[in-house]
Design a protein around this nucleic acid. Structure first.
Length: 633
DNA sequence: ATTAGGG
DNA sequence: CCCTAAT
């Protein structure tokens, strides 16, 4: 009973597409149906029909954002408006991979078209509407861009005028942008664009982005993509923003300019050479426009596609241009530097999904169709302008929804979509069948015991601390006693761990926290000295054979912390101010060890130091004092 | 399965 | 520690 869905095949709303230039596109058809909870379709009520029709009749011309919001109310939760990954590369992959049955779609579409369109109930099995560009137009990117540009431009260039920015300096720049971009064009929307060109001051690539707060990053995101985001992941935001900026170059390289709401592909002569001469603002402005215009597809499409094509394509496009804007340069060098030292990391799936989920919520808290979400006002209109086609699953009737797979969208049965993320913590193991009944008690006992033990150890260490341990011998003695206790606890811990393992397999239980003892730290340091940093599994095997609860990851983490500590706590101007010293059970790591760590870090491949240096360089002055973290056990 | 990094 | 991407 949830959803009203527009479904293709009924009344053709065709004639009023003045902006339809070449008429090669098929008429847009909608059919209104209601999707029941079980996925079946029923005819709409008269009210619903009236609402839709009224909307279509009244708001077609220039739907404002608000209007779109209204429309989106019709496309709530289960609405299936699907758009093929039009001009993006994903399309070809889609076909070649054979994972998605594109041909099948086409066939279905044909079948649908042949159907008589006068009986809405005749088309029971479709609850999916595919917004599809003609496949044959998708072959060359150039051609695709052409088509898509026109398509989108004709629908909606100025939509993103919602964005507003007050900074006057930015406005200047903005004006310049719009002027250069829009060339000779004037018109109602131009002013709109002008007044709303977002703030680019913070969009200078990752170097600058590094210093921004999450909020600022979100702002930048909004400026770049013309929509809000709720994602709080800095890395993700940075990537998205820089991606957005970098992708803008594609417009340049494809020689497209915006003119009269349309993106027109200029002659090839405009391509490469001229870019260099272009003011930077122009590039940025173009980037904006590109995302206004091209980004009108489904958000997931654009995001994932632009992501997946980011690495190589950006590089190649940069190479193609043979030019580096400020953005490119800063970003490039930064990436080169970091690329050498660090592994590049893809945005986490979690965040992608998080984004999708959160952004699916419109202001009213309702779920809006994924297909409509992204482009603000543009999509709806576009749906009417470009062909709407149906997906017919031939005999089987089931609702589908769009999902994103590796950068292109696919249809998946609605019911089959499962939560991919980590299971909610609240789903506790009591629902599970396999954990032994006595588990909770055993584990509790173990944990309490371990806790006591740990405390003991810590006290020992504290004593040692107070007693000024300088010599290794002294330490050794104490440590041995500590180790004994640890060993006693290890067996118990093994039980605990195996038990936890069966649970953590479902992502439920957190590993019992075990404070690192001095002896462990020493072992770790020794291990690193012996095998070098990074050989965590080796170290674990050989130096931590008796500590089954320390995984190689733990070692790695600890070493990272030690490194950090040695960088900060050991730094000259650190007058023994120990943050968190209030807690007696936390023992600062003896400087001697930190010194060793530091030596190792310096001695070993520069990578460690270099990476740290880069990392810390971002925060500049603050870290120099090193108030950040000091080593604790 | 390990390793690297971000949280 | 956890989580996840990269290798």
């Amino acid at each position: 009973m949830e959803v009203d869905t527009l479904q293709g095949a009924q009344e053709t709303k065709n004639g009023e597409n003045d902006f339809e230039e070449n008429g090669s596109l098929d008429p847009v058809v909608y059919q209104l149906v209601r999707v029941e909870g079980d996925g079946t379709l029923v005819p709409p009520t008269e009210d619903e029909v009236l609402q839709i029709e009224q909307f279509l009749d009244d708001k077609v011309d220039l739907p404002s954002i608000d209007d779109v919001g209204n429309v989106e109310d019709f496309f709530t939760n289960d609405c299936m408006l699907l758009k093929e990954p039009d001009f993006e590369e994903g399309y070809s992959e889609l076909e070649t991979n054979g994972e998605i049955h594109t041909q099948q779609f086409d066939a279905d579409l044909e079948v649908d078209r042949l159907k008589p369109s006068d009986d809405s109930l005749d088309i029971p099995s479709k609850c999916t509407v595919v917004h599809d560009h003609k496949p044959d137009k998708l072959n060359t990117e150039q051609g695709d861009n052409n088509i898509v540009h026109q398509d989108n431009a004709s629908t909606e260039t100025p939509k993103s005028t919602v964005l507003n920015d007050s900074c006057s300096a930015e406005k200047e720049k903005a004006d310049a942008c719009s002027r250069s971009v829009n060339n000779s064009s004037t018109g109602p929307s131009v002013s709109g664009v002008t007044s709303s060109v977002p703030d680019f001051s913070i969009l200078r690539g990752e170097v600058c982005l590094d210093n921004l707060t999450i909020r600022e990053l979100q702002e930048a995101f909004r400026a770049t993509f013309g929509r809000e985001t709720t994602v709080k992941d800095k890395l993700w935001l940075k990537r998205r923003i820089t991606m957005g900026l970098t992708n803008s170059c594609d417009v340049q390289s494809s020689g497209c300019v915006v003119k009269d709401y349309k993106i027109v592909c200029k002659d090839a002569k405009h391509k490469l050479p001229t870019i260099e001469g272009l003011p930077k603002v122009e590039v940025e402005a173009t980037s904006l426009v590109r995302f206004q215009v091209l980004g009108s597809g489904n958000e997931r499409d654009t995001s994932s596609c632009s992501y997946y094509r980011s690495e190589d394509q950006q590089r190649s496009s940069n190479r193609l241009k043979g030019v580096s804007t400020d953005n490119d340069e800063s970003e490039g060098t930064l990436q080169d530097e970091q690329g050498a030292a660090k592994r590049l990391r893809k945005p986490t799936k979690r965040y992608i999904e998080e984004l999708a989920d959160t952004e699916t919520l419109d202001s009213t808290g309702k779920l809006s169709s994924p297909g409509k979400r992204a482009a603000h006002g543009e999509v709806l209109l576009r749906q009417r302008v470009t062909p709407l086609q149906e997906v017919d699953s031939l005999s089987i009737t089931y609702p589908t929804r769009k999902d994103t797979f590796g950068g292109f969208s696919v249809h998946v049965p609605y019911a089959s979509r499962m939560r991919r993320g980590r299971p909610r913590r609240n789903f506790i193991s009591f629902l599970d069948d396999d954990p032994p009944v006595e588990c909770p008690e055993v584990q509790m006992a173990v944990e309490t015991m371990l806790g006591k033990d740990g405390e003991h150890v810590n006290h020992k260490n504290a004593e040692k601390k107070g007693g000024h341990i300088e010599t290794a011998e002294k330490k050794g003695g104490h440590i041995e006693t500590a180790d004994n206790k640890e060993i006693r606890s290890i067996e118990a811990d093994d039980i605990c761990r195996t038990d936890a393992k069966t649970k953590t397999k479902r992502g439920l239980k957190r590993k019992h926290h075990r404070a690192w003892t001095l002896s462990e730290v020493l072992k770790l340091v020794d291990g690193v000295a012996q095998f070098g940093p990074g050989k965590w599994s080796e170290i674990r095997r050989l130096s931590f054979a008796s500590y089954s609860y320390r995984t190689s990851v733990d070692l790695k983490d600890k070493w990272r912390n030690l490194l950090r500590a040695s960088q900060t706590q050991l730094s000259p101007e650190n007058d023994g101010v120990c943050p968190r010293k209030s807690n007696p059970s936390i023992i600062p790591i003896p400087p001697a060890i930190l010194l060793r760590v530091k030596e190792l870090a310096e001695l070993q491949p520069q990578a460690g130091n270099l990476a740290a240096a880069i990392k810390f360089s971002g925060q500049s002055s603050k870290v120099a004092q090193g108030r950040g973290s000091s080593g604790f056990l």
